[in-house]
């Protein structure tokens, strides 16, 4: 086989599906370009938040008063384990092409993702009711809801995408296109976890530490 073993970041199909492997290089690189432009969106929201969380508190509560670190820690674990489970779903797809094990791993990933979004909504609810910290109170809170809300919206759309992929796997099996789509969803999912590292560090931990 003259093809390089590893043509692109992420799981490579070389060895088990040379044809899919060759087709993957182009579409996955294109998806990386999308991911990086999405990262630029998050960076701008982070920059806004960084300025607002220090200078935009106005008369409202500060970060240390409204954030619940225990919830943030649990959310971190949920998203991390969900990312990990997706890795195993992809390996099951690559080496076994076994529908049931891939769907089982996707279900684990999805449940952890739903739990993550649920916990975030619960955080919002607690903040809005117990601390009266709603988005319109201060620039800091507007920026906080915008940043974490954009991330939660990304995770939610990832979950919808995951449900669609589960249906495609059930209907079409491991067609080349289905495989490439699942590989792109994996990149999206792992990248959201990387963005979350920024959120739990620069929003939650920085907010409580400083």
């Amino acid at each position: 086989m003259s093809l390089s073993e590893r043509l692109h970041p992420g799981i490579n199909l070389a060895g088990t599906d040379p044809e899919g492997h060759e087709a993957a290089e182009e579409v996955l690189f294109g998806f990386w370009i999308f991911l990086m432009s999405d990262l630029v969106l998050f960076a701008v929201l982070f920059a806004t938040y960084a300025a607002m969380s220090v200078q935009g508190i106005a008369e409202g509560p500060g970060p240390a008063e409204v954030f619940d670190l225990t919830a943030a820690f649990l959310e971190t674990l949920l998203l991390l384990l969900s990312s990990f489970a997706f890795g195993f779903a992809l390996l099951a797809m690559k080496y076994r092409e076994n529908r049931r094990s891939v769907l089982a791993w996707l279900l684990v990933t999805g449940i952890l993702g739903v739990a993550f979004v649920g916990m975030e909504l619960h955080d919002y609810y607690v903040m809005a009711t117990a601390h009266e910290a709603t988005p319109q109170v201060s620039g800091f809170l507007s920026a906080y809801y915008l940043l974490t809300g954009t991330h939660a919206l990304h995770v939610s759309s990832g979950l919808v995408w995951m449900a669609i992929m589960a249906i495609q796997i059930a209907v079409f099996g491991f067609d080349k296109r289905v495989k490439l789509r699942l590989m792109r969803l994996a990149l999206f999912w792992h990248m959201l976890d990387v963005v979350w590292i920024g959120i739990f560090t620069f929003v939650y931990l920085f907010g409580v530490a400083s």
């Binding site: 590893r6 970041p9 992420g10 370009i33 990086m36 990312s83 890795g87 792992h190 990387v194 590292i197």
Partner: peptide
């Protein structure tokens, strides 16, 4: 995360992604 989950490394075959 980039190294172990997204599998970015310094291999020559996919420097484009690293550059990006």
């Amino acid at each position: 995360h980039l190294r172990f989950f997204l599998h970015i490394d310094l291999e020559r075959s996919h420097r484009d992604d690293l550059m990006l």
